[in-house]
C-alpha cells in the first residue's frame, strides 16, 4: 500500500511541475498578448516614434531588426552551409574535423554578451565599422553560425546515401553530386534551419547593445554603416532609459508582442516544413 502511495505522490508532483510550467509560460504569452494588442494598430507599424517615445510607432525599429537579421543570415548561411558540406560530404575524419566540431560546439555555448564584446573589439573598433548595421549583422551572424551548421548538417545527413551512390554511378563528379543531387534534396531541411535562426537572431539583444543598436534615430538607416534602432533593444531602452515610464511601457508591450508573434510564426512555419518533409520521405 505504501508503495502505491509513494507512486501517487510522485506522479502528482511531476504532474504539478508540468502544470506550473505551462501556467507560467501561458501567463507570459497571455499578458503580453492581452496588453500588447491594444497598442497595435496600423500606425504602430508604419510611423516613427513621436513625443519623446510616448506616441507614434516603432517602424524604424522594425526596419532595423529586419536589416540586422538579413545581414546576419547573408553572412552566416554561406559560411555555415559550406562548413556543413565539408563535414558531411568531404570530411576525412580526423583531427581536423574533430577540432572543427569542437569549435562549433563550444561556439554555441558562448554567452551572447561575449559575442557583443567580440563584435565591439573587432568590428566596431579594429575594423572601424563603427556602431553600425554591418558590425551588428556580423556579430549576430557569428552567433547564428553554430545553429545553421547543425541544422544544415542534419539536413545533409538525412539525404539517403543511395542518392549519392546512384549519382556517382552514372558518372557524376563529387561536386556535381553535391550540387545537383544532395543540396536540392536537403534544401527543405536547410531552410527550416535558416528560418529558425531568423527567429533567434531577430530577438537577440546583448550582441547588438554595443555593436549596432541605438535608442533613437531620425528616420531610417541609409547605409550599412548607419546605427539602427532594433525591436529587442527598443524594449530595453523604453524600460530603462525613458522619461515617461507609463506610456513607454505600453509601447514596450507592443514591441514584445511583435517579437513573440514573430517567434510563433517562425516556429509554426518550421514545424510545417518539417512535417511536409517527413511526408516526402515516406
Amino acid at each position: 500500500m505504501k508503495k502505491n502511495m509513494t507512486q501517487f505522490i510522485g506522479f502528482s508532483s511531476v504532474y504539478l511541475a508540468t502544470v506550473i510550467t505551462l501556467f507560467l509560460l501561458g501567463m507570459i504569452v497571455y499578458f503580453i498578448a492581452a496588453k500588447g494588442f491594444s497598442v497595435l494598430d496600423w500606425e504602430f507599424f508604419t510611423e516613427v516614434p513621436k513625443r519623446g517615445m510616448t506616441e507614434g510607432g516603432v517602424a524604424p525599429a522594425i526596419v532595423g531588426t529586419f536589416y540586422l537579421t538579413i545581414g546576419a543570415i547573408v553572412f552566416a548561411l554561406p559560411l555555415g552551409l559550406a562548413c556543413a558540406i565539408y563535414l558531411c560530404e568531404y570530411s576525412p575524419k580526423g583531427i581536423v574535423v574533430n577540432v572543427i566540431r569542437m569549435s562549433i560546439y563550444n561556439l554555441a555555448g558562448v554567452p551572447s554578451v561575449v559575442f557583443g564584446l567580440f563584435g565591439l573589439a573587432v568590428f566596431v573598433k579594429y575594423f572601424g565599422f563603427g556602431v553600425s548595421i554591418l558590425s551588428g549583422s556580423l556579430t549576430l551572424g557569428i552567433m547564428a553560425l553554430p545553429r545553421i551548421i547543425a541544422s544544415s548538417e542534419e539536413a545533409l545527413l538525412a539525404v539517403p546515401q543511395s542518392y549519392r551512390e546512384a549519382s556517382l554511378a552514372v558518372g557524376a563528379t563529387h561536386w556535381q553530386t553535391i550540387k545537383k543531387m544532395v543540396l536540392p534534396s536537403a534544401l527543405p531541411g536547410i531552410l527550416t534551419g535558416v528560418i529558425l535562426s531568423i527567429g533567434a537572431v531577430a530577438g537577440e539583444t546583448a550582441p547588438i547593445l554595443f555593436t549596432a543598436a541605438t535608442f533613437y534615430t531620425r528616420g531610417y538607416p541609409d547605409s550599412v554603416f548607419s546605427e539602427v534602432m532594433a525591436l529587442p533593444y527598443h524594449i530595453y531602452a523604453l524600460m530603462t532609459e525613458g522619461t515617461h515610464p507609463a506610456e513607454q511601457t505600453e509601447i514596450a508591450y507592443g514591441c514584445s508582442l511583435i517579437l513573440l508573434f514573430l517567434v510563433f510564426a517562425i516556429s509554426a512555419v518550421a514545424i510545417f516544413f518539417r512535417y511536409r518533409q517527413r511526408i516526402v520521405h515516406e
Binding site: S162, Y163, E165, A166, A169, M181, S185
Partner: peptide
C-alpha cells in the same frame, strides 16, 4: 543497386 534507388 540492390534496392531501387531512383532520385526523388
Amino acid at each position: 543497386f540492390q534496392k531501387p534507388n531512383p532520385f526523388p
